[in-house]
């Protein structure tokens, strides 16, 4: 009964042709349709931010958008951060500053931070804190997350 639609998601530079029901959220199709399970589903109603991805460069909640709406759009997920075995500087900073414990929120925080720093490499500390307040970490590692992102921001400014 439910109609399927053929769409193309451009995930980290690779085109994925997938068949979706309109009700399928972007995060579900990234994970199940494209097989990229780095992006996590948390609350599935827009509160926690663990599904944060970059849509045409902007951080969004992938649980609050239907995949069909992202047809033809450029999506970046945590899988797109590292170059081979060379970690993205944010990933390295998260390790260096112990910015993760269980790691469930980490892909969302990394993409949020990447979006913030790419949009404004000279971002103020206030704006950085405000931006990072979008996502939840239930190991309460906020201080170290902020420390890690601040360190990368300082590198970018240098």
């Amino acid at each position: 009964m439910t109609q399927h639609h053929s769409i193309t998601l451009h995930l980290n530079g690779t085109a994925h042709a997938v068949s979706v029901e309109p009700r399928h959220t972007l995060v579900d199709v990234i994970r199940e349709g494209c097989g990229a399970t780095g992006t996590h589903t948390g609350c599935e109603h827009g509160v926690c931010g663990s599904c944060t991805v970059l849509l045409d460069g902007e951080p969004i909640r992938a649980c609050l958008m239907f995949a069909i709406q992202a047809d033809g759009r450029q999506i970046r997920t945590v899988e797109g951060l590292a170059h081979g075995t060379i970690l993205h500087r944010l990933q390295q900073a998260f390790i260096d500053h112990h910015a993760l414990q269980c790691g469930y929120c980490t892909p969302g925080f990394l993409m949020l931070a990447a979006g913030l720093l790419e949009a404004d490499p000279n971002i103020s500390d206030d704006a950085l804190q405000d931006g990072l307040s979008a996502n939840l970490c239930r190991c309460t590692g906020y201080v170290n997350i902020l420390r890690a992102v601040r360190a990368v921001a300082a590198e970018l400014r240098a």
Binding site: G46, P59, R61, G131, A134
Partner: peptide, 12 residues
Amino acid sequence: QHHIAHLPIRTR
């Protein structure tokens, strides 16, 4: 605008 949810919500 500053009080409306968070950045990823404000972009959509």
